[in-house]
Simulated assay, not measured.
Amino acid sequence: MSDNKHTAGSPEPREDGGTGRVVGTPSPAKGESLLAKDGEGAKPPAGPATELDEKSAKNAERVVAAFFVLAFAASVGFIAYYIGWSGRNGGMHGVVRARESNLWLGGTLALAMLAMAFGVTIWVRRLMTSKPIIQERHEMASPADTRAAFEADFLEGAEDSGITKRPLLRRTLLLAAAPLGLAPLVLLRDLGPLPEKRLRSTFWGEAVKKAKAEGKQGVRLVVDGTNAPLKVSDFNSPGGMITVLPEGIEEAPEAANEIAKAVTILINVPAEQFKPVKGRENWHVNGVVAYSKICTHVGCPAALYEQTTHHILCPCHQSTFDATDGAKVVFGPAHRPLPQLPLGVEDGYLIATDDFPEPIGPSFWERG
């Protein structure tokens, strides 16, 4: 009979007669360690209060300073491109230059952020001794000795970080951070240019002046999309609404911008329900009235019309205007009516006899 006993530390016998160790059992090795003990050739880890080697610290300081200077140069390049180069040939807001602007602006800003991050990381890892900080909990009202202890700890931490005794790091950090602090202010330009006084008049006014100089009473209304002049007989069904523009606007300089400002809705309101605004009694043609299509809330197109209530609706924030009563606000966040365009008739065609009497668009754009 064979003896099933085995020596301690020897491999367990397997059923197939082998002596390999079964997977999952502890290793029989003794007296071995993955980490060397003290005195066996490996150095113990440095304590938290270990003094820095000044020579290596100086080298690390120069590296950190170099990263901070690089961050400064990249952020200055970001601002310079944004203000200078991107302002040429129509600015950076066009479709053609969008890719170039994104490349340079994103690249310089990313380089500035990365350089700052690398510099701060090397500073912390190479120039700070990482002394342990113990925070004690006390009453909210701190006594004088506690405040004095805090001040001492703060000064000790500042000294440990090297911010007080390493002026090169301090100066280059401030140098790198200064233009980055201005970057958000520069990016406010991306909200778009201010309209200034450009919304006080539209192409309707220019077209009317040109028409009157030619001996006409006003400029003809054309249907948006077809540019066909509109006769009174073409729009004699109450309840209808179409979008119109001044004749010849497609030939104007910056026609897209002019069309965006001059776009107008034409509505045929039943004569028995129409209430002319005082001073504007002759601004309509048998109940046919024209209002700016740009909502006075935030500038969305007020392009919906309820024939039963004769309400003009803006789909963005549900501002509602009464087409029978000077497009006054009856619901929603808008604070003023849609500007009304004075209309007339010449040779059977609907014409505009003047520009809008007030700036079109949202009230916050310009009301001064």
Rank of each mutant, 00 (worst) to 15 (best):
S10F: 11
P13W: 12
D16F: 11
G18P: 06
T19V: 01
T19H: 14
V23M: 01
G24K: 10
P26T: 02
S27H: 09
S27K: 09
A36Q: 14
A36M: 10
D38K: 14
G41A: 06
A42C: 03
K43T: 03
P44R: 15
P44A: 15
G47F: 11
G47K: 15
P48V: 09
T50G: 00
D53S: 09
S56R: 15
A57M: 11
N59L: 14
A60I: 07
V63G: 02
V64I: 11
A65P: 00
A66L: 13
V69H: 05
L70T: 14
L70N: 12
L70P: 04
S75P: 02
G77I: 07
F78K: 04
S86C: 10
V96E: 12
R99E: 06
L103G: 01
L103W: 12
W104V: 14
G107Q: 13
G107F: 15
A112I: 05
V120L: 14
I122K: 02
L127F: 07
L127I: 00
M128R: 15
P132C: 06
I133M: 10
I134F: 10
I134P: 01
T146E: 14
F154H: 14
S161N: 04
G162P: 04
K165Y: 02
L168H: 01
T172E: 13
L175C: 11
L180V: 09
L182C: 04
A183V: 15
A183D: 00
D190E: 12
P193E: 03
P193S: 06
R200V: 03
T202D: 05
W204S: 02
K212R: 15
G215M: 11
K216M: 08
G218T: 01
R220F: 10
V223H: 13
D224L: 14
N227T: 01
L230R: 08
K231G: 02
K231Q: 11
K231R: 15
V232F: 07
P238F: 14
P238M: 11
I242K: 15
V244C: 07
E247N: 06
E254I: 02
E254P: 00
A260V: 03
N268L: 06
P270M: 11
P270Q: 09
A271R: 15
F274N: 01
V277S: 14
R280H: 13
N282M: 03
W283N: 09
H284I: 01
H284P: 03
G287P: 08
A290I: 05
A290F: 05
I294F: 06
A303F: 06
A303K: 13
Y305A: 03
Q307D: 10
P315I: 08
C316Q: 00
H317F: 12
Q318G: 08
S319H: 07
T320V: 11
A323C: 09
A323N: 03
T324E: 08
G326T: 05
A327V: 00
H335V: 12
H335P: 12
P339Q: 02
L341P: 00
L343M: 08
E346C: 04
E346F: 08
Y349G: 01
T353P: 04
F356V: 02
E358M: 08
E366G: 01
E366I: 08
